[in-house]
């Protein structure tokens, strides 16, 4: 019939797709053959860049092709030093496209940071923008976090700037271990502690404690918040706690954790943190309470029974040692 409308059936759509796939495969094979034969004969030229680029945009994880590009760029650097910038911007565009196709492509990110080393002037604003975009799509993309560290170093971006970046990321979503971890790398460098007891300057430590408490109360099942709190509080030499400001911080934290425990009596994370706080504050004096909590933990989280039992015995052992050292 002529002039009638019809809708393509699924089979027809699949047929079209299958044809496209077959076409692609043929193109891929031809391109690969050509690339290797050119490389063999040392023809590291614009054409080989074009060919490898085409294949890489489809499949960015063929390391050999990236290496061929590196060879070609290095050769260009020697033979045509004045044209290096053009080649570099070409590589930046290609890697960006590849990262778009697969944001977790090791090769693309590596190639990009290698490329930055090949030029004297880098537009870092652009690089940060790319990172922002990628982290927007997937805030746990560690390739991108790593790359960010590289460009922070290269561009000599201030640590304060990065701390603010991490604060903003956390404000958007606090269940992101990457952001908290990034923060824990930065803070001791910006706000070093004046004593050897705590990991941070007193005022900053109080601020961070408050921030993490908000996260813990909002979602006490969020593992990353508990880990960060542990890092904040339990990072010092335990022997020298007496009369220190850290001790009062720990007591404050214990108080709020106990409040939370009242609200969430079945939450294992709270129980465990109360345990740890009691242990640091006065392991010996709190032994009964700690062991009670460990029994409760075994009940609410039987899967980790072994761990809790070990923890209990370790604390008892610790206390034994303390008793001995005190009596001697």
């Amino acid at each position: 019939m002529h002039g009638r409308l019809k809708v393509r059936t699924t089979a027809e759509q699949q047929e079209i797709k299958a044809k496209e796939r077959a076409k692609k495969l043929v193109m891929y094979k031809t391109a690969m053959n050509l690339i290797f034969s050119k490389r063999k004969s040392g023809e590291l030229d614009d054409e080989i860049l074009k060919m490898t680029g085409q294949v890489l945009t489809e499949n960015p994880d063929i390391s050999t092709l990236w290496n061929i590009r590196k060879e070609t760029i290095l050769k260009t650097k020697e033979t045509m030093p004045d044209r290096v910038d053009d080649y570099v911007s070409n590589e930046l565009a290609l890697t960006e496209q590849c990262i778009r196709v697969n944001p977790k492509s090791y090769n693309s990110w590596f190639h990009r940071s290698w490329i930055l080393d090949q030029v004297s002037i880098v537009d870092f604003k652009n690089e940060f923008l790319l990172c922002d975009k990628c982290l927007e799509l997937d805030e746990r993309n560690f390739h991108c976090w790593d790359y960010r560290r590289i460009i922070v170093q290269k561009s000599k971006t201030s640590l304060e700037n990065e701390l603010e970046f991490s604060t903003n990321k956390i404000k958007k979503n606090f269940s992101n271990y990457s952001s908290w971890h990034y923060r824990s790398e930065l803070l001791p460098r910006i706000y070093p502690s004046s004593s050897d007891q705590s990991i941070l300057d007193d005022q900053k430590l109080a601020e961070e404690c408050n921030l993490i408490q908000n996260a813990i109360f909002t979602d006490p099942n969020d593992q990353s918040a508990w880990f960060y709190q542990r890092w904040l509080l339990f990072n010092s030499d335990e022997k020298s706690l007496k009369n220190s400001s850290l001790l009062s911080t720990l007591n404050n934290e214990l108080e709020s954790c106990q409040q939370l425990h009242d609200l969430e009596p079945d939450n294992k994370w709270v129980k465990l943190q109360v345990c740890e706080l009691l242990r640091r504050i006065n392991g010996l004096g709190n032994e009964t309470e700690i062991l009670q909590l460990i029994q409760q933990l075994i009940k609410v989280d039987p899967l980790r029974q072994g761990y809790y039992t070990y923890l209990g015995s370790k604390i008892v052992e610790e206390n034994q040692k303390k008793k001995i050292s005190e009596s001697s």
């Binding site: 805030e139 958007k172 979503n173 269940s175 979602d219 099942n221 969020d222």
Partner: peptide, 13 residues
């Protein structure tokens, strides 16, 4: 944005 589990109210435990 993010899936509900991230920016919604409840986390996946």
């Amino acid at each position: 944005g993010q899936p509900w589990s991230c920016s919604g109210y409840c986390s996946l435990v």
